[in-house]
């Protein structure tokens, strides 16, 4: 196996990446605070916690109006709430062998996205559980646990053929209010993933593909499946590539349609995209 593919199988968070994780979570949290004044938060959770009052502004949810204060002061006030500290997030990371391909590797891109969400979740006071097949789960609840979470992610290596594995049916997943599954969805069970959305649980699905999977190069290529070791050598010309793109589109459209039916947010992305862009797009701009 070449040095490049060996690198693709591992996760490395350098100093610059760690700074970006911190900056991203700070920026997103600040944006949420500014946004959550008017209207209702878009986030699901086990409950909401009272945080204070502010004068009523047109557009506020009338249900948040404090009728006692209105009667007492004859002025409308809106209740300000924040998420309960007991909010539970679960981040599922696919670390099967097929995630160890691409430049940058799909596992690296998935781990970066997961790290950004860990930082964000801990900053919001959520309890975050990291899950990957073949690895013991890691529960994080304090902001200071971020380093533990990054270390856990950095220790991931691509291997095996389990995908999300039994983590989909684990106890933390059953109790979580938000589940984010990150992987290439190769041979993943769509049914098991869609079932996660039962019971009002928020499910987000990020399908990470290598650049050469989205845009295969022309010329002879020996396509290798790292999980099975099977290979298929093809001379990729423009016709073959166009046909591949059609077939891939069908595949991705299938995921998109299934997710739309089950209320799952879905994003197919390239491992070459910055995690900030992916996170924002996955959450519709408001993580």
């Amino acid at each position: 196996m070449s040095a490049d593919s060996e690198r693709s199988r591992r996760v490395v968070f350098d100093v610059d990446l760690r700074r970006r994780f911190e900056a991203f979570s700070l920026r997103m949290d600040g944006a949420r605070r500014r946004r959550e004044g008017p209207g209702r938060s878009s986030h699901f959770g086990a409950g909401e916690e009272w945080a204070g009052f502010r004068p009523y502004r047109p557009g506020d949810d009338p249900r948040q109006l404090d009728w006692n204060l209105l009667a007492r002061l004859d002025r409308p006030f809106t209740r300000i709430t924040r998420r309960e500290v007991s909010e539970q997030w679960v981040l599922l990371v696919d670390r099967s062998a097929s995630m160890g391909v691409g430049e940058p590797g799909k596992l690296q891109a998935s781990a970066e996205l997961a790290a950004a969400l860990v930082g964000l979740g801990l900053r919001r006071g959520a309890r975050v559980t990291l899950l990957a097949s073949g690895r013991p789960e890691r529960r994080l609840s304090r902001r200071t646990d971020l380093a533990d979470g990054l270390a856990w992610l950095e220790a991931l290596t691509a291997g095996g053929d389990e995908g999300f594995g039994p983590g989909l049916r684990s106890e933390p997943v059953r109790r979580a209010g938000r589940v984010v599954a990150i992987g290439d969805l190769a041979d993943a069970s769509a049914r098991a993933l869609m079932e996660l959305s039962r019971g009002g649980r928020e499910v987000l699905l990020a399908q990470v593909l290598a650049p050469h999977e989205l845009d295969p190069p022309l010329g002879p290529v020996r396509w290798v499946c790292p999980e099975t070791g099977e290979a298929l050598e093809l001379a990729v010309d423009s016709n073959l590539r166009a046909e591949y793109e059609r077939e891939l589109n069908r595949e991705l459209e299938g995921w998109r349609a299934r997710c739309a039916v089950h209320g799952v947010r879905y994003l197919a992305t390239s491992s070459a995209r910055p995690f900030e862009d992916v996170a924002l797009e996955l959450f519709g701009g408001a993580p």
């Binding site: 070449s2 593919s5 693709s8 097929s98 995630m99 160890g100 391909v101 691409g102 799909k106 290439d184 969805l185 190769a186 041979d187 593909l209 290598a210 050469h212 999977e213 295969p216 190069p217 010329g219 002879p220 290529v221 020996r222 396509w223 290798v224 499946c225 790292p226 099975t228 099977e230 290979a231 298929l232 050598e233 001379a235």
Partner: peptide
Amino acid sequence: RAPDLGVGTL
């Protein structure tokens, strides 16, 4: 020999 490229599924 064509270059090897890993892929999620064949």
